[in-house]
Design a protein around this nucleic acid. Structure first.
Lengths: 222, 222
DNA sequence: AGTATACTTAACAATTCATTAACATAGAGG
DNA sequence: CCTCTATGTTAATGAATTGTTAAGTATACT
């Protein structure tokens, strides 16, 4: 999974420098030049982690952090501070404001990334559970479990992933290309492979639910 | 609860200075003047956190840290490094060696305590319940005890940790990668090692409970 | 040091899964 | 109603994954 990071700093140079380094590591980066914009952006971008410079004009990092913690949808986002070496006070105040960690300037990319990964790893517990109940089919990704009319049915890995994918947007028709991209990534498989997997799922769910849209693809229907 | 801290530094002045400040905060402090003594003491004292000076003669902080992480009963203890300002390398190497945080010298007691509390707080969240009763299996981490149908069964350490890990989220499928990360950290083990441990557990619990999800991993099921 | 216990690995067996080929069927459009 | 194409079905193959055993290493204990 690619984590999203929101960078907040009033200096463009730093934003660019950090963006470059973080993107190189596979993070999806968004940036803001002040606290207010950061909060607005955070609501839409829904980052996993916010990196805040402590020293910023108008609303400084600490105030921004305090504000973020007040917003219900953002209160659990990880926050990491960037502080200047001498700002002893900031470090303390930062933790009080709800920071999860801080890194001192000058920033060493490797160290920063090490810290970010440590934070994200610790936070992983809060990952979502993906559980869906649609009609008489219930699917639980974490438990790799499918219930059909409250009876457990066994699906092999590919079958499971395929059903899960189709159920992710019930009623939407997914083309064969969509399916191949999602389930097979860039492995090449023959023409009938999908059909066979579809057939196996249908067999196990009494031929309900999965419908063929000829010339287009397949969809999951209630 | 009063947390226990093991202080490790070769300079007596620092030990005294920090002891004083930490005890004032209610921590129970023990000290060691080198890495070897630290490890011996840690086994008996069972601290919640070890504070290690990076720069020490003979075995430095990083080596001590690496050694500590190798000892099963100590591998989960929090470790905080003390580094001189300029030791950029130490910071990186320290995280690699398994440190949880670091503080630069000169040490400001307030900041150190703030960091310690942050670490302990973070760690508390991830603390697991020590005693679980699921179906006919009861497991107690502290006592390292497993009851199957009310009969005590003996599991070796790896077996115990593996069962405990799987039981921590019943029904959830853990990938082999998950399992290796949790049980073996970054030791490399062969493909069949997990299977063998699983087999041993199954043998001792009559083949119930642990299910294989082929291509995905293993799960604990009632 | 010597013994017991635990851990890991190699070698092989067993199982399950994914894919394909070959053929069958369905349905749209002429 | 015929043809063409897309999809359905079945069974076989072999690839991938996991299970099992026994023996070799490592570690802990006395």
């Amino acid at each position: 999974m690619n984590y999203k990071i929101l960078l907040v700093d009033d200096e463009n140079d730093i934003l660019e420098f950090l963006s470059y380094n973080l993107e190189k590591e596979g993070f999806i980066v968004s940036t803001a030049i002040n606290g207010k914009l950061a909060i607005q952006l955070a609501k839409k971008f829904k980052p996993d982690l916010i990196i805040l410079d402590v020293m910023m004009p108008e609303m400084d990092g600490i105030n921004t952090c305090t504000e973020i913690r007040k917003i219900p949808e953002l209160e659990n986002i990880l926050i990491l501070f960037l502080t200047a070496r001498s700002e002893e006070y900031s470090e303390l105040a930062g933790f009080d404001a709800g920071a999860d960690d801080y890194v001192t300037k000058p920033i060493k990319p490797k160290l920063l990334i090490s810290r970010i990964n440590a934070l994200l790893k610790r936070n992983k517990i809060s990952e979502k559970v993906n559980n869906m109940l649609i009609g008489d089919i219930q699917i639980d990704k974490e438990k790799h479990l499918v219930l059909y009319k409250n009876e457990e049915i066994h699906l092999a890995r590919k079958e499971f992933n395929l059903l899960y994918f189709l159920m992710s947007v019930p009623g939407k028709v997914f083309t064969r290309e969509d399916i191949i991209t999602e389930i097979w990534k860039d492995t090449f498989v023959g023409d009938r492979t999908i059909d066979v997997h579809i057939r196996k799922i249908r067999e196990k769910t009494n031929n309900h639910h999965i419908k063929t849209v000829k010339g287009v693809g397949y969809k999951f229907d209630i």
